[in-house]
Write a protein that binds this DNA or RNA. Structure first.
Lengths: 339, 339
DNA sequence: ACAGGTCTTGAAAACGTTTTCGTAACTATA
DNA sequence: TATAGTTACGAAAACGTTTTCAAGACCTGT
């Protein structure tokens, strides 16, 4: 491995001079700088990030905390898409991405925060995780630059998909299509769900519609089986809604199966909506009516805000940023005839 | 940040002693070792990975190269699942995962290999990438421990999903259901596709069936639109197959749309198969007949082999490991009546 | 010719570890 | 008691950088 020392020797200068020439300091003569740069290139020199980090306390490395209890959030297409955007943006700014776990190193378990210190990460993005766990709290309370996704901590920058507006748009669309009997099979009990539910109720109220409790059933995100069962329960009631909202696009597939095996057609007999806008929603037939969350923007902003928190700790603002989604009308909500 | 120096001062010993006590060297007295360990714990000491890496040339960090030309492979559920398994396995063994890109650092573009050197990665997993690009070739020819996924390089360990066997099983199943007219709309022209195609032809031949060229059409993996168009073309021919193979489960959705909008039912009028076994395949109705690739095992073995390559460079074998998938019968292939 | 200024450069310390080698103090053996 | 062997510890160098500070070289204007 060729180091600055080798370049210094070859060029007949000191290591300090090489360092400064390569890092663009102004106090190195033009010809000398050129020569050193050429030398470095020729010899295939590359800096050693460990040595640099040791000296500067900057690793140009961002941590990602995206593991949920079951699995890593990678198989969750919403978070995978966000991670993708974070990665692209970070790389463009010269940062790498490292996963942050609680794995044991050298025999001793490390907390998330300890792990981040160990690796010297410049900052961390936290997403799709149990935000109430003590380990996360410790990390959030630490002095590390941090950005959270879809969850807000006091005094920390957060990027959230605008569930309130999204749900409102989706609900308004359904109302505008003439529906008045709407059921909502919703996801796990967390802040995202609370926001969507609240927005759902508020919008219905604005239309003067009261949603009966029996039409609001709990399921879980991405749980096809449970959503299918809940849908079956719903369909066994004596009065049926004309439209059903599902927790997300994926679980909606389960719900739609339940509907079809009950002999009902979508959307002729019953309309449905998903949430997320995952690729399959655009591909399926009929195209699913849903609200596409703007994962690309969420990820991009998360990375940008984190980096500005790192690079301008004085100036950077602590913000809560809402990213709007986009209504995808699709074909699973039919227009009701005015009765 | 508390360092070994602080512990040494507090315990009245030298830094060397602290280092050895913490790393379990045998030449430190039992009581002293205990005291030092206790001290370290109390003071909240954690090692500095940069300093350690600088000295030992080991980072306990694995690189992942999974970016394809369009986007990062993260949104590709097959690779996301593999990455997930790699991550879990690596973490269990004390390694972290860092993405390896070609981003510019310090103004200069780096090749993949340069990037790996820069970060001091102990090894790299390469997947879902253009294996013919010069940058990849450079990396593969480098002295770095490397494992490739679904592509074989000479003298390098590779983990491949057993496409040959998988396609054979799928084809045999379809034949066993009485089908003799089978079409194959296949994916991009790469080694995976070649293997599947070859296996498809070979199996058909074993059943004494010749597949007409007009029934073997090129599409692209995960391309719903193109697969839908190709399917339409296929359906416009005057003689129709009784079963269609699609590039993968995702694009199969497009194909199925084409079939249905031609007024044909699945599987009553025409049978279909996907490939991959992504979650949606199990959720859709009717359940898709497909071949589930064992992503968990592929990822796990990839990580394990890479780590043994790193830790036992002398002993570790260069291998080509085939991971079998599993036939998922589903409900999209109907049993043909013997005519 | 000299003071003061501007450009260039290098010596050296520091970052936090690991590891080699030396040595002092014991312990066992003859 | 002298010798050899063992055990426990520390001094110091090294890894590859960055950065401060001093200083030499070269001007400029008086």
């Amino acid at each position: 491995m060729v180091s600055m020392k080798d370049i210094a020797k070859k060029c007949g200068v000191s290591v300090a001079t090489v360092s400064k020439a390569l890092n663009g300091y102004s106090d190195i003569g033009k010809e000398k700088r050129e020569e050193i740069k050429r030398c470095a290139e020729e010899m295939g020199y590359f800096p050693n990030s460990s040595a640099r980090a040791l000296k500067t306390n900057r690793t140009w490395n961002l941590g990602i905390l995206i593991t949920d209890n079951l699995h890593s959030g990678l198989t969750h297409s919403y978070f995978a898409a966000i991670l993708d955007a974070i990665k692209v943006t970070a790389e463009r700014r010269g940062y790498d991405i490292t996963f942050t776990s609680m794995s044991p190193v050298g025999g001793r378990k490390m907390s998330y925060y300890e792990h981040c210190r160990y690796r010297g990460l410049d900052g961390v993005v936290i997403a799709n995780i149990d935000f109430t766990s003590p380990d996360i709290i410790e990390l959030v309370k630490s002095p590390l630059p941090i950005v959270t996704i879809d969850y807000v901590f006091d005094g920390r920058t957060a990027i959230v998909s605008n569930n309130q507006k999204g749900m409102r748009e989706l609900t308004e669309y359904v109302f505008s299509m003439g529906h008045r009997q709407i059921a909502y099979i919703h996801g796990d009990d967390n802040t995202v769900t609370k926001e969507r539910l609240a927005s759902f109720y508020r919008t219905a109220e604005a239309y003067g519609v009261t949603v009966p409790d029996k039409w609001v059933l709990p399921s879980r995100y991405r749980d096809v089986g449970m959503t299918e069962r809940r849908t079956r329960e719903l369909l066994s009631q004596d009065s049926l809604p004309t439209c059903i909202f599902f927790p997300d696009d994926f679980s909606a597939v389960g719900g739609m199966n339940a509907i079809r095996s009950a002999g009902l057609r979508i959307p002729e007999d019953i309309s449905v909506c998903g949430y997320d806008g995952i690729p399959i929603a655009f591909a399926m037939y009929p195209r699913l009516t849903t609200l596409r969350q703007d994962t690309a923007t969420v990820g991009k902003i998360a990375a940008e805000k984190l980096i500005s928190l790192i690079e301008n700790p004085k100036i950077a603002l602590i913000e809560k940023i809402s990213v709007d989604g986009e209504l995808v009308k699709g074909d699973t909500v039919r227009r009701m005839q005015p009765s």
